[in-house]
């Protein structure tokens, strides 16, 4: 699974930056075409849900999606599946 921010919906409130336990979301720096500074993703393959949703058959964590007031965060199926090297930080 792949974590995606829908730029057509995001209003740049950075709530995802605040809540992600893996600090995958980082405050963006450049405004997009709509003048909104959309957060950027830092090594999104670290996201538990990206890695394990298919295995567990349910959404894990998912707090960023739940709190996103603009319904801009979701996960997309990856085709074809790409293996990720995941560095677990302690």
């Amino acid at each position: 699974m792949k974590l995606v921010i829908d730029e057509s919906r995001c209003k740049g409130c950075n709530l995802c930056v605040l809540v992600c336990p893996y600090t995958i979301f980082q405050e963006g720096t450049k405004p997009n075409r709509r003048g909104i500074v959309v957060p950027v993703l830092d090594r999104p393959e670290r996201c538990t849900n990206c890695r394990l949703q298919a295995l567990y058959g349910r959404t894990l964590c998912g707090v960023c999606q739940m709190i996103c007031p603009d319904q801009a965060i979701h996960w997309k199926e990856e085709e074809p599946y790409e293996a990720h090297r995941v560095e677990v930080e302690y």
């Binding site: 057509s8 209003k11 709530l15 999606q65 739940m66 996103c68 007031p69 603009d70 319904q71």
Partner: peptide, 22 residues
């Protein structure tokens, strides 16, 4: 969601969108 109506009118950072999600 009525996707044809998104994005909604709420201000940046407004909590109402979160309540809709939940």
């Amino acid at each position: 969601l009525r996707t044809d109506r998104l994005p909604h009118i709420y201000c940046t950072g407004c909590g109402n969108g979160t309540v809709i999600n939940c």
